[in-house]
Design a protein around this nucleic acid. Sequence first.
DNA 1: CTAACATGCAACTTTTCGGTTGCATGTGCC
DNA 2: GGCACATGCAACCGAAAAGTTGCATGTTAG
Lengths: 116, 116
Amino acid sequence: MTPHTPRKAKPPALQKAAPLFAALGDPTRLRLVAALCAGSALSIAELTAGAAITRQAVTKHLEVLDDAGLVHDLRRGRKRLWQLEPARIDEARRSLEAISRQWDQALQQLKAFVEK
Amino acid sequence: MTPHTPRKAKPPALQKAAPLFAALGDPTRLRLVAALCAGSALSIAELTAGAAITRQAVTKHLEVLDDAGLVHDLRRGRKRLWQLEPARIDEARRSLEAISRQWDQALQQLKAFVEK
DNA sequence: CTAACATGCAACTTTTCGGTTGCATGTGCC
DNA sequence: GGCACATGCAACCGAAAAGTTGCATGTTAG
């Protein structure tokens, strides 16, 4: 048995972060994010330039990022411009911070127990 | 070597973070990480308890996390115990911080330009 | 010794993913 | 109008991921 299982509320907000991390977990998409975090909104063609893949592939990646809420698009004439949604990046970062905090806290308690 | 890369340098360490995010980008694996960040090392059987998937599936996920450097195992008798590698979590978090910083900086510059 | 437990190993199935090709559509400009 | 540009849409493909089943192996406790 688990004699002292603190069956507290697990942070279920973490689960919500999975799609976020999944969206960031691809080198191409990470490159796109990096390009967009320079500030200016970029067209699909611009984002494709220099990449080793097709424009359509880039479009798909952008839509994945969009579904994760990490970017959003705005139509402008015949162009479709994309830009970052930095709040979402922060959200992912905070999830990792939560994990770190919980870990540190667990260590502290363990240490306190040992020293007793 | 990197002889004082002046400009044009892509965000260097960012690409390295992709496998990290990919490993975190799965609800099952995120659940495992959450369970492990409570501090104590857990066996495969313990980590499987309550999950809707097989022990073998859990093993595979743990190995994915291991490959990403997020966890490590230690054999102890007939058990194989897993625990978190918090430094790696921090690494991912710092990557997101770098993005945020770069974005904020871009905004600052844009603002300065407008106000000129 | 042996039975129960914890895990390893391998083959196999089913989706999902990353990417492509080919063609259609909308827009800007001369 | 007409052409070049920017993108959309859809079918298709191969590889990898996620998960399963079945069985073998090492370990611990009676």
